[in-house]
Design a protein around this nucleic acid. Sequence first.
RNA 1: GCCGUUGUAGCUUAGUGGUAAAGCACCAUAUUGGUAAUAUGGAGAGCGUGAGUUCAAUCCUCACCAACGGCUCCA
Length: 580
Amino acid sequence: MENQNLQNKRHTLAHLLASAVLEIYPDTKNTIGPAIDDGFYYDFEFSSPIGDKDLAQIENKMRKMLPKWLEFSHEEKTKEGSSEYFKTNPYKLELINEIAEKGEKITFYTCGDFTDLCRGGHSENPSKEINTDSFKLDRVAGAYWRGDEKNKMLTRIYGLAFNTREELDAYINQREEARKRDHKKIGRELGLFTFSELVGSGLPLWTPKGTIMRELLNDYVWELRKSRGYQKVCIPHITKKDLYETSGHWAKYADDLFKIETREGHLYAMKPMNCPHHTQIFACEPRSYRDMPQRYAETTMVYRDEQSGELSGLSRVLSITQDDAHVFCRENQIETESLAIWDIIEKFYSAFGFELQVRFSTHDPMQREKYLGTDEMWTKAENALENLMKTKGVTWLDGTGEAAFYGPKIDFIAHDSLGRVLQVATIQLDFNQPKNFGLVCTNERGEKEQVVMIHAAIMGSIERFMSTMIEHTAGNFPTWLAPVQVSIVPVRENHNDKAKEIYEALKREDVRVELEDDNNSLGKRINHAKAQKVPYVIVLGDKELESGNLTVESRTDKQEINLEDFILKLKEEIKNKSLN
RNA sequence: GCCGUUGUAGCUUAGUGGUAAAGCACCAUAUUGGUAAUAUGGAGAGCGUGAGUUCAAUCCUCACCAACGGCUCCA
């Protein structure tokens, strides 16, 4: 109930915001304004644009008005009465009509001098309950009326609101802290990837260090897949448009494809996904039920012409490296194969201490035209996935309308440092593409039997996985993944030879090691290694030469250990993919 | 794509209508240092790009590009 109380305050503040805005800008049309997780917002149509610098004035107005907000009164109105009240506000009129059509009550709430069409849920006495310094207008953003991009774009004002000033400050601080973990910042500091304005936005370029990590991650996924009977395949990055006409992608995503016209005038496209290509490998020879399932894996880049405003660091790019796999199987193999994929996902993410949420992404029956195939297919596929989740005993988030156009999905959700939702791993069940491509196997009775496709990605995309993993670890990668695993810092120049010896010894063991033997001071070189988040720093001086042991500093402790033991320990840690 | 904010050396930032300042990083010299950064010196940007206004623009105007926060989208 405490929480409800806070939600009421936030909702009340949305009203207060609208009231202040209307007072300062009388020709503004106010629309809707709910409470949200960290505060509230309200959407307006302004007669002339406003920006962040106008927020202070509005906020001051709100503070000035608040003491006069003693209590809310409410009143039920007729459709005619309420329409009359909002006759110059088309947004409110639209809402009123809808409420009336549904036969629900139309209620108006008033506090201070401000009356709004509203369902209720406010503070009893705003002036007493809300501290003037427990809220803050945060930023101006655009938002389409009713979330539909065909509608007019309104101006949304976001506010932060908590019970106390302290909680508000704590939240703002925490947000600042989260920004320090931003993968774009850490990626630059650790030298993992870069962007070039000449190459273009959404097209990350991977440095040697970043590339090491990409390959290690991919090797790990492959290791898990290989033991479960997957085979690698390889396809070109372009195709004739015919492939996508057959798969159904052309009809749905033609605008989002990078297209290429040949000198002879034929139309090709960069591949935006791999499934259609993979179907053609499956289809290249007749398949017996004895050969099923066929499991194809390929890590490869796909290219999507996303809208520029959607791009964001590594989490949303134009060139996406998918760790893709397609299992072609019979219906009675769906469960076993899907559970095997789920297994891989659990194993893989446990190497990072990740907790993923499960989302059941189903089709939206209200928008049937967005999806291929028959209702029977969808019911069958969705039931199969639901049973899978029940078998696993997980709770899932509702993802109605989040299905792919060819089938439902189980999506695995991570969050970025600011709490934004990112889909990473996915298991998708597809009856439609096998049908469109006529994919069959010959069954026990000699009949052609349509096969099923399971689409599976473990990281989803290496770019997106890296973004969330970097933010999760703040760049403190586990030893097996760290681009530099050990840094050796000789104390003085006359320790360089011995340092070099150890460096070579570690190199021979395939340890990724660096020697910090430049002309900088000892403190500076150690600092440099630590700033690069190297898991182990070896400091080598007279003390170590005498004792024959190494001083090894990890991120959390310091120990004396001899070289052989250290190598054993490292290898063990790398082999087990230990978290540290 | 739409709304808002931002764009000064590799990075982080200062600054002004009269052609730019600092720290870190880099290079050189000295220093051989036992753990949050040795000292001195040097080089490095014409201020995102283009056009316009002006005697004069990095600072004003417009367009474009890019980044960030939202909205929409995400096979």
